[in-house]
Design a protein around this nucleic acid. Structure first.
Length: 648
RNA sequence: GCCACUUUAGCUCAGUUGGUAGAGCAACUGACUUGUAAUCAGUAGGUCGUCCGUUCAAGUCGGACAAGUGGCUCCA
């Protein structure tokens, strides 16, 4: 933000581009600066005196790259929306209306739910309020008077009552409408130019499902109509990246209501991608000293009573199946099985760490409203492993896991580092029944993970209430094309399950010691990883993962025989190759192959057949010229060599 | 699970005020034998998500259920 301000003595001072709008506003309210004379909106220098047409101690706010300005802009629009709703539906009670990353929402307690028609009316009314260009005034009241002013607004009263005693409580007034608000806001409603109501949905008061459900309307606003158009365009692009759309277009997976919600079926091409990924990650793990096992998806319910899952995780599990005298459940996690595998033999301190991995199917009851393509499912395949370590090995092993994550995501897949945020997931100290009760254990585990992250110089944030019931985690969070914040890789520290299963190793001193368990998943689950992969790559997968790596396109039926001979040659080299032998023009075949995102198209006709060559067309660069068939086979083998041991 | 919306051919979508369905692409057949992003013609394909109701008559109106979509809650 680059702004010139006129100081009270009349001198003009340029404010650093690094200053935030809030900071500038503070300077103004402190009397340091009076009014800005020019600033940038959407990159263009404009005269702010035109933007700010009355003098008060309000903030100067513009919608440019400054996040604070953007938030104030949206926040103001949310007040305009609330004003419109109150005008149209006077019995509405107001809850909260904050700005969010992309726009804002407002929660209303209404007599009846909003329909699409209501939304259109609200949008019209908002445009009127903008046209009225109502000045926005800020004032503050002591608590008692604030409560009196909001006597008809129970949600606002609840909020006021929670504010600390003695604090000034600020309000913003525009025309007949006044709302409790910390600000900041624009100077008047007319500053808002382009608005669009997006979706409405139910939302619980304070996000607690025990509270009343309110009506939430999401919306965006911009200072220029063109920016709104741009926003809509970006939204459409995000839809194109949606893994469910790509999955359908490329025939990767399907669901069927007879199978059930959240239970996708992988079609041949999707199954190929998954098989390659699973082989890849297992090969990586083998190289790092992991041993893989197979364990059943069903277990006696007592296993989970022993592990503690039954007490802490029951609601997320499928119900017990009672057969003869046994009570069986589908497993939600693999840890208990792996604990028993560890316990199956005696271990020396010299044997540790022991790393037990499995591509294991887990079953979790997800709310019907939560399931989403491959991203949230009710049966998933975890790329799971449990590392049984001595306490002195925790740091090294967690470090190795984090290193593997970086290697996979950044080196092998080339995903940009900015896509990921490291989250230290801690317990919620106020909600003790959710977690295994052992404060000492929690404190040790949490501080150890924090120390490791710091030591490795990894930037992270802490989140209370995100831990597993048995221990804290380092989760790697990503934001999907759909804007969901999800975990893919995870690394968890667990002192609890070793205790519960009475695990031990024989130490140097000849006595029994308790190992520590590190739970980790690199791809997370195959399902969620594929959803992420498809969205991140827009379906243009690296060659080693492509279900169809090469498509041979004969110019005419005369050339099908030659096409088939090179196909056989490639198949022997474990390349996934098809021949398009239909009687279509070459342009048509290329178009189809291109849309199916095949990395290499080999056009073959008389010229190629004579010289035992192929004309290579790359999906990104188009025609890249002729080469000998053997030369092409070597090229593609080289391309996939470091990811793949067995390609089929 | 909760709130809102959606569900018509394999896919993408039309379908006027209720009078038992259309297009494009795909598929199939035939002709064309093709040189780097769509050759032409023809054929076939649907109890309009399922069930119940209103009506002389329901893709269209009402209800229940299911699946899907956007959120909330939850979560790998």
């Amino acid at each position: 933000m680059n702004v010139k301000v006129t100081l009270k003595d009349g001198s003009i001072r340029e404010v650093d581009s690094g200053i935030s709008v809030i900071e500038l506003a503070k300077q103004i309210s402190e009397g340091l600066a009076r009014v800005a004379t020019c600033g940038r909106i959407d990159g263009e220098v404009v005269d702010l005196r035109k933007e700010i047409d009355h003098d008060c101690s309000l903030e100067i706010l513009t919608f440019d790259s400054d996040l604070d300005g953007r938030k104030a802009y949206w926040h103001t629009t949310s007040h305009i929306m609330a004003q419109a709703v109150v005008r149209l539906f006077p019995d509405t009670k107001l809850a909260i209306g904050p700005s969010i990353d992309e726009g804002f929402y407002y929660d209303f307690d209404t007599v009846e739910n909003f329909t699409d028609e209501d939304k259109a009316k609200i949008e019209e009314e908002m445009k009127k309020i903008i046209k009225e260009d109502l000045p926005i005034e800020r004032f503050s009241l002591p608590k008692k008077e604030a409560l009196e002013l909001m006597k008809n607004e129970p949600y606002k009263q609840e909020l006021i009552n929670e504010l600390p005693e003695g604090e000034e409580i600020s309000f913003y007034k525009q025309g007949e409408f006044t709302d409790l608000c910390a600000g900041p806001h624009l100077m008047s409603t007319g500053k808002v130019k382009a608005i669009k109501l997006l979706t409405n949905s139910g939302a619980y008061w304070r996000g607690n499902e025990k509270n009343k459900m309110l009506q939430r309307i999401y919306a965006v606003s911009f200072p220029k109509a063109s920016m709104l158009e741009e926003f809509i365009k970006l939204q459409e692009e995000a839809k194109e990246r949606d893994h469910r759309k790509i999955g359908k277009d490329l025939n990767l997976f399907m669901t069927h209501k007879l199978v059930g919600a959240g239970l996708p079926m992988y079609l041949p091409d999707g199954a190929t991608i998954r098989r390659c990924l699973e082989r890849y990650i297992q090969d990586k793990e083998i190289a790092l000293g992991y041993s893989h096992v197979y364990t059943p998806s069903l277990a006696n319910v007592d296993l989970y009573k022993t592990s503690g899952h039954w007490d802490h995780y029951k609601d997320d599990m499928f119900p017990v199946m009672q057969m003869e005298n046994e009570e069986l459940v589908l497993r939600p996690m693999n840890c208990p099985h792996h604990m028993l595998i560890y316990k199956n033999s005696l271990h020396s301190y010299k044997d540790l760490p022991i790393r037990i991995g499995e591509l294991a199917h887990d079953f979790r009851w997800e709310n019907s409203g939560a399931v989403c393509g491959l991203e949230r499912v009710r049966q998933m395949c975890q790329n799971d492993a449990h590392l049984f370590v001595r306490p002195d090995q925790i740091k090294e092993e967690v470090g190795k896991v984090l290193k593997l994550i970086v290697e996979v995501y950044q080196k092998d897949f080339g995903f940009p580092a900015e896509s990921f945020r490291y989250r230290l997931s801690l317990r919620d100290k106020a909600n003790k029944e959710k977690y295994i009760d052992n404060d000492e254990m929690w404190n040790t585990a949490e501080s150890q993970l924090r120390a490791i992250l710091k030591e490795l110089n990894i930037e992270f944030y802490e989140a209370e209430g995100e831990a597993a019931f048995y221990g804290p985690k380092i989760d790697i969070q990503i934001k999907t094309a759909l804007g969901h914040d999800i975990t893919i890789p995870t690394c968890q520290l667990d002192f609890a399950l070793p205790e519960r299963f009475e695990l031990s190793y024989i130490g140097e001193d000849g006595k029994e010691h308790r190992p520590v368990v590190i739970h980790r998943a690199i791809l997370g689950t195959s399902d969620r990883f594929i959803s992420f992969l498809l969205e991140e790559t827009k379906g243009v997968l690296p060659t080693w993962l492509c279900p169809h790596q090469v498509k041979i396109l004969p110019i005419s039926e005369k050339h099908v025989e030659y096409a088939n001979t090179i196909k056989e040659k490639m198949q022997k080299e474990m390349i996934r190759v098809d021949v398009d032998d239909r009687s279509e023009k070459i342009g048509y075949k290329i178009r189809e192959a291109q849309l199916s995102k095949v990395p290499y198209m080999l056009v073959v006709g008389d010229k190629e057949a004579e010289e035992n060559k192929v004309s290579v067309r790359d999906r990104k660069d188009g025609d890249i010229g002729q080469m000998k068939t053997d030369e092409f086979i070597e090229k593609i083998k080289k391309e996939i060599a470091d990811k793949v041991i067995s390609n089929k």
